[in-house]
């Protein structure tokens, strides 16, 4: 069965390593924070100016001066720090942040990503996504395998305006975990529980490499 949003987030949480600073984008990526094992030593960075971001506040304890990049009220953990936007993107460009997780409208089999604009229909802007994807060493995309019209979001080339070129390393969808080898394409690493290889092949637009037995995700 295809994963729900929390399932995708739960699988991505398995990619986290202790000692990392991690930036989570808006949407499914934000949910990843809910699946960090207790006592796991990592810190979340939000590009509007906080390291050491904590969970949502208790009811009645919201602070208008303490939000994440999705403009949600948050808390800070012991050891947290606040800083300005230039410092924030300084640490991003200088690769102090080890992992970036973000959503996408399209990903190509060469690692290109599009997630900020649908010409003529939706223009919200790139926010910090272009800075993040241009600099991060490790970028995981969290998204549905297909869009609302049922078309694959994993393509041989993006049709929408690009956010970044050749930068995505891994994609976790409701159906699969895929690694991107710019030379070969999407390499199928894992299937969602109960999802067949045939279904993934049918729903993947770009080059897809299926090697040997592709295991199911262990969630």
């Amino acid at each position: 069965m295809a994963l729900d949003k929390n399932g995708i987030a739960r699988r991505i949480a398995q990619e986290l390593r202790e000692g990392w600073y991690v930036n989570l984008g808006i949407g499914i990526p934000t949910l990843v924070a809910n699946f960090v094992p207790e006592g796991f030593a990592l810190e979340f960075q939000s590009e509007n100016g906080i390291l050491g971001m904590g969970p949502f506040p208790f009811e009645g304890e919201e602070d208008a001066d303490l939000i994440n990049a999705g403009k949600q009220t948050i808390t800070s953990l012991p050891g947290a720090s606040f800083f300005d936007s230039a410092t924030s993107f300084g640490m991003i460009r200088a690769r102090k942040v080890q992992l970036t997780v973000l959503g996408a409208m399209e990903v190509s089999d060469r690692g290109d990503i599009a997630n900020w604009k649908i010409p003529g229909r939706m223009v919200k802007g790139m926010g910090g996504a272009m800075d993040l994807v241009a600099s991060a060493d490790n970028i995981i995309v969290a998204m549905q395998h297909s869009n609302r019209e049922g078309e694959s979001k994993l393509l041989s080339a993006c049709t929408l305006p690009l956010t970044g070129v050749g930068c995505v390393k891994k994609v976790v969808t409701d159906l699969a975990v895929l690694e991107i080898d710019p030379q070969r394409g999407f390499i199928l690493l894992e299937r969602a529980p109960g999802v067949s290889i045939d279904e993934i092949i049918a729903k993947t637009g770009g080059r897809l490499i299926v090697e040997g037995d592709v295991p199911e995700m262990v969630l």
């Binding site: 009811e59 919201e62 208008a64």
Partner: peptide, 16 residues
């Protein structure tokens, strides 16, 4: 006014 755009909270007495 310091308006909040996305008021997100968790109920009290829930674990992290």
């Amino acid at each position: 006014q310091k308006r909040i755009e996305q008021r997100t909270v968790r109920p009290k007495n829930t674990p992290l």
